[in-house]
Computed example of a mutant assay.
Amino acid sequence: MNTNKHSKKVVHLPLFIQKNHKAILFSLLLFLMLPTTFVHAQRLYTTDGVNIRAKPNGSSKILTSVSAGTAVTRTGSKGNWIAVKVDGVKGYIYKTYLKSSKKASASSANSTSYRAVITASSVNMRAKPSFSGRIKGSLSAGQSVTVCTTKGAWKKVKTSAGKKGYVYGIYVGKSYTPVKKAAKTSPTVSTGNYRSRAISYAHTRLGNKYSQARRDQKGYADCSSLVRDAYKSATGKYIGNTTYEQLELMDSYLYSVSSVHNVTVGDLVFHRGSSNHVGIYLGNGKVLHASQTAGKVKISTFSRSSTYWDTGCNAAAYCASR
């Protein structure tokens, strides 16, 4: 007679699981408790030098910039924008600038050439991707070039004549639309308040660190972003994003300067040499500007014999007229 007819069948688990069942159970529970963003995190690579923005749109604040081939962690998405994290910074990158493979990213960024145009006047082409690089020539607005490679924020371009060099990326685009010049403004326009408000704002930026890559981040500025922000704060008007664009937009308000001491307080002063520079005149030979040499926003004093500032601009009148 079979006495085990109604007994339950014993299932013997593998010896490894028997010995480690507590650790396996704990690991399973820990995995299930992980945040969704961690579980679905994905490593991606940038295909070009690209800005990381605070919100999923092209007009939002730029948090930082990364070069081609940079590894980022995908944390989500919103429409055509990918939420990413890199070096502790969380923001958004447009999806076409990301690839799943570093090899594919490098190939796209460094091997595929394309046609482009210069978007600003008198853009310097340099021997290396740095503002300290030797200037090999100057390119004009609307000039067609071939972009050969990308290195960080710089583009290596080739002209129709076969000349090669590096151009800062913000001056290279897919199309060029000539800027419509503002109409001349009567010198009787009352603009004193605009000037004083612009100066007051610029004083709040004293000590900000100089950086072209981080110019739109808090605590940083370069010369053109500083005056752009000052007049935006003072008037709500846009005077241009770069010195090249500012010179074009305000061409009707430019005047020659034999001495910076002859400039109206609150006007912009430009140096139009091998590298454009701009600041706000404070009077008594003093100019408030973002100095690349000093590495910060500061006030410099110039003598009457100084020839550095060669152009003034009635920026306040320009803003009043728009």
Rank of each mutant, 00 (worst) to 15 (best):
M1L: 10
K5E: 00
V10D: 01
P14T: 11
L15N: 14
L15R: 10
Q18W: 12
Q18E: 14
K19L: 14
N20Y: 04
L29A: 12
L30W: 04
F31G: 10
L34S: 01
P35E: 05
P35Y: 04
F38I: 09
F38M: 05
V39K: 13
Q42I: 01
N51M: 05
A54H: 08
A54E: 15
K55Q: 12
S60N: 11
S60K: 12
S65P: 08
S67Y: 03
A71N: 05
R74V: 06
T75L: 11
T75D: 01
T75N: 11
G76L: 00
K78D: 15
G79T: 12
N80A: 15
A83N: 08
G88K: 15
G88W: 12
V89K: 12
K90G: 10
Y92C: 03
Y92K: 07
I93H: 01
T96P: 04
T96F: 04
Y97A: 08
Y97H: 06
K99A: 03
K102A: 14
K102C: 07
K103F: 10
S105H: 03
A106R: 11
A116G: 12
V117M: 10
V117Q: 12
V117N: 03
V123D: 00
N124T: 14
I135K: 03
L139E: 07
L139G: 08
S140W: 09
A141M: 07
G142D: 09
G142L: 00
T146R: 09
V147Y: 02
C148G: 09
K151W: 15
A153Y: 14
A153K: 14
K158M: 13
K163V: 13
Y166C: 03
G169N: 13
I170N: 13
V172T: 11
G173R: 04
V179H: 06
K180S: 14
T185H: 10
T185M: 10
T185Y: 06
S186H: 11
T188F: 09
S190V: 10
R195V: 05
R197T: 06
R197K: 15
A198Y: 04
I199R: 05
I199E: 03
S200H: 07
H203T: 07
H203C: 01
R205C: 14
N208S: 11
K209N: 11
K209T: 14
R214E: 09
R215H: 09
R215C: 10
G219N: 07
A221R: 04
L226Q: 01
V227G: 00
R228A: 01
D229C: 02
A230S: 12
S233H: 12
G236D: 12
I239E: 02
G240R: 11
T242L: 00
T243I: 05
T243G: 01
E245I: 07
Q246K: 06
L249C: 00
L249G: 00
D251H: 13
S256Y: 13
S258R: 15
V260N: 06
L268C: 12
H271P: 01
H271T: 02
R272D: 09
G273N: 04
G279M: 02
Y281E: 02
G283C: 05
G283K: 05
N284A: 14
V287F: 06
L288N: 04
A290T: 05
Q292C: 05
K296D: 11
S300L: 08
S303I: 10
W309I: 01
N314Y: 12
A320G: 11
A320M: 15
A320C: 08
S321F: 05
R322M: 12
